[in-house]
Amino acid sequence: MTSMDMTQGRGISVSVVLRLVLLAVVAGLAVAPVWAGRSDLRLLMEVFSFLALAQMWNLLAGYTGLISVGQQAFVGLGGYLFFALAMFAGLPLLIAIPAAAIATAVIAVPTGWIAFRLQGPYFAIGTWVIAEVFRLSAAQIGALGGGSGISLPVALAKSLADSRGGREMVMYYIAFTIGIASVLMVWGLLRSKWGLALTAIRDSEPAAEAMGVATRRVKFMIYVLAAFWTSLTGGFVFLQKLRITPDAAFSLNEWTAFVIFIVVIGGIGSIEGPVIGVVIFFALREVASDWGTWYLIMMGGIAIAVMLVDKRGVWGAIRARTNLSIFPVTKVLD
């Protein structure tokens, strides 16, 4: 009993230290344009994008048990709808991105209606097929460049800011906002009444249903929310790239496989997991990016190794041994 209490006490104080460290890192990142070079900023923008994608995939798979391998559908839709709204509807870029995400969320409703007829592995394959349908459809739209894609007109890109440095600064803060807000949103959600429902579904769907949680409706809402935020990220990603093609926009590897790697390595079913996973993923990528194919083989090897050693991932393994919690969601009866 006493030793248990002591670990608990130490756990809490270490948690506080970790929280302060994280806060300092975020504060540092908030002023990154001051200290970071151009290529560092570009890397950080990618980090934030993947952080948001990972938080969304984790919310979906880690809490509601919906294993989607078709989230690239929403990245691609976000990108394409953003281009279309900016180029043809004349919306300002900063409005076109969220507008595209709202449109994607609307599209996610019938898409989810179809995908939700399928269970477990069939759902996974179904989402993949749906994403392929969107990819093939995008390639048919001549106005958006068909299969070879399209670039964002220079004049539009310049509407963000006149100078290149200015544009990069604006883009950096969009990425920063999308990434950090994804974590805060998930945290807020998990601390609310709906967090209780989501965590209950994660742990036992039949029991959650029997305790009055309309599991199907909750899962659907999360599916649409994840589509929205994934699309928001997608819109930003292609603003940064300034060019979109069906293959890049609806890439399974880039927008889903890497994201699954991040969540699984970091620790599925927690807020901390995807954060840790993103750091590990980019650290590995920076070290090994010029190894060619070996880099992907190494990634696969690491994923298998983590599964064998502790399938709960890095944070899951830490969590099982300590009481650490950076983003506490627990409700305490005092």
Binding site: T199, D203, S204, M211, G212, K331, V332
Partner: peptide, 30 residues
């Protein structure tokens, strides 16, 4: 359940990642 039918499972289905109190909160909230 919201109408007032509650059950216990023969094979317990606790929400293992939540505290005991939070298990009850799920039922009481929904």
């Amino acid at each position: 359940c919201r109408m007032g039918i509650a059950r216990s499972f023969q094979i317990p289905h606790p929400f293992v990642g939540m505290s005991v109190y939070e298990n009850l909160l799920v039922a009481s909230s929904f």
